[in-house]
Design a protein around this nucleic acid. Structure first.
Lengths: 354, 354
DNA sequence: TTGTAGGCGTTATCAA
DNA sequence: TTGATAACGCCTACAA
């Protein structure tokens, strides 16, 4: 930390707190402030000894470039906006944490806006307002597929990265493919001997998560199971949706012996309603979710699910936000088998991998 | 959105995207840009008609002041830093959402840093680094009681607001008092006839949450119940801690018939372990938590708990961050009785109140 | 390889 | 009640 040039009793610089500027560093290093700028920005054309002197001065003064000044003078804001759903607790915190650290790693800052989905749909204006003017805004489902929001940022001339988008439109898309692992999950259930499997599908077809339903159908078909439309109910990813779908599914004349919920919160709802009705999981009813959100391991039995590589997705999104030419690699989804399908497994006590 | 002065076919300003500056507004309103600045900043000394013309120009041009420029020229950054624990999913997302919207309401932006507690304790430097230079940093437990962190920000000359702090030190404290409601919760359990109540206490005495244990002891004493130290086990607020404490408590020669966990995730651990061991909740074992985090309603039975007024706390913290003279009012904690103590209550399906 | 001039969009100061 | 002018700290040009 730099102090103003007030000499104190120890003959050192004083404690009147201030912040070192690029000129202070330049003076201390005996170079022009432009040279300091070059060092800070990692430009090549700096003599090695000048660079060393500058770096030392930076360390000594605790110099940190002013974001505000860089924003104003340069063209970049070093800010990335993130828009995500203002509900569904576990998903948003994972994304926030992952995006935040991905941004920090790249020298960027994350500004977050959470949006209520119903409120947004009901309103005729796009209420997202980043007064901080980020270089880029990252949109996650369901907003990444919202044409109005895309146009909003296009008009504002702000770059957009769309995570798991499925519709065409403005911005760069970071694609995901959930189908293979969802298929693996379904084969796991079928391999356990289940013949009638209920599905709590995503709310709308126009989402990447629809792949979970597609996988369900493929698996049912490939195993030659009966394709009963009554076994498929759509839900809005909430706990309540899981509960109510389960009430319906278990009331069917031929009830399913397993339920695949396309989100862990809904799967928790399945578990809760099953418990209320006295079904034992997994013996009477096997349950599977999707996401591997923290809730999946805080219920009993813990939920078999598909782990979303949120960190990798976040890193790719930030990378794409900074470098428009970035080509993301396919992400590594992973089947996690737990007690809700396999009775021999009990609590999952490992710390949650953010 | 303001467009640069390129006349298009319709005779309107063109579509070369740019952003309106204060000078553009001044030109459009026929005043000096300083007058615009006065209007934007809500200063008094502006003529009513000038003000009206400026406001209209602002609307027409879609003018938004540049945060970067304000930061550079003014003394405020319009940024508030938030430091919170990088684990315990539900708590952090609630805080983030609440702080974020509280900041937005005040025209500030929120920058977030999540810190791993163990990593922080093991490291000899404070690794929080807000390159965005916020005006103020809000610290939540357990970091609000960390002397090193306080000194770090004091040296950096950054204001600090400490939410629920109990130790003295640098910065403003937003105090909370959890004892009355924790007492109410204990009385509820005792009122149900429980004589031996297990307690899963907070990890360390030096926290505001210690009030939960204090309340436990008071309630036990005032009801004349046996004060058995074996009934009190400390936990680190994790699901796993809830599980392991429950294993111990239920193995006692005289097992408790109710367990008060000082956090909902731990209470979920109690529920899970009780289920594994075949105890029925609440008939064989009543369970209560604290926080009213989302997890409390996504398990079966849903958990009786104390609702933390996170929104109010967040608002107060932001208010204190902006205005050092702000005096927060006591917060309104609330007992929420659910199925884990009252068998007549089933799922809680209301949308979560952020 | 290094340095100088100019400007980014706002607020602060002082004058009109 | 208004307005001109000088910062703020840095980056982009261009020049040496």
């Amino acid at each position: 930390m730099y102090k103003n040039a007030q000499t104190d009793a120890r003959g050192q610089t004083g404690i009147v707190s201030s912040v070192a500027t690029i000129k202070d560093v330049a003076k201390a290093a005996g170079v022009s402030f432009k040279t300091v700028s070059r060092v800070v920005n990692g430009e090549k054309r700096v003599g090695p000894e000048a660079r060393e002197r500058v770096n030392q001065a930076i360390r000594e003064l605790g110099y940190k470039p002013s974001l505000a000044a860089r924003q104003l003078a340069g063209q970049r804001s070093y800010l990335i906006g993130l828009v995500l759903l203002g509900s569904g607790i576990s998903y948003i915190s994972r994304m926030m944490i992952a995006m935040g650290s991905a941004c920090r790693d790249k020298g960027y800052n994350l500004i977050t806006a959470t949006l209520d989905y119903h409120q947004h749909m009901a309103s005729d204006i796009v209420s997202i307002n980043f007064s901080a003017r980020p270089d880029c805004v990252i949109l996650t489902p369901p907003f990444c597929n919202d044409q109005r929001i895309l146009e909003h940022f296009e008009r504002a001339n702000i770059a957009v990265v769309r995570v798991a988008a499925v519709t065409p439109g403005y911005g760069l898309t970071v694609p995901v493919n959930e189908e293979p692992c969802a298929l693996e999950l379904m084969r796991h259930l079928i391999g356990l001997g289940h013949k009638r499997i209920g599905m709590i599908a995503p709310p709308l077809p126009l989402r990447a998560s629809e792949a979970r339903l597609v996988a369900y159908r493929k698996a049912v078909a490939e195993a030659g199971l009966e394709e009963d439309p009554a076994l498929v109910i759509r839900g809005d990813f909430s706990f309540a949706a899981g509960v109510s779908a389960t009430t319906s599914l278990l009331a069917l004349p031929q009830r399913p012996t397993a339920i695949f919920a396309s989100g862990d919160e809904m799967a928790a709802g399945v578990l809760a309603e099953a418990a209320r009705l006295g079904y034992r999981v997994p013996d009477d009813l096997a349950v599977a979710g999707f996401d591997d959100s923290p809730i999946a391991r805080m219920v009993f039995p813990p939920i078999t699910t598909v782990h979303q590589p949120v960190r990798d997705i976040a890193r790719a999104a930030v990378e794409a936000a900074i470098n428009p030419d970035f080509k993301p690699q396919p992400f590594d989804y992973k089947l996690i088998i737990r007690g809700s399908t396999d009775g021999s497994r009990q609590h999952c006590l490992e710390p949650y991998p953010f």
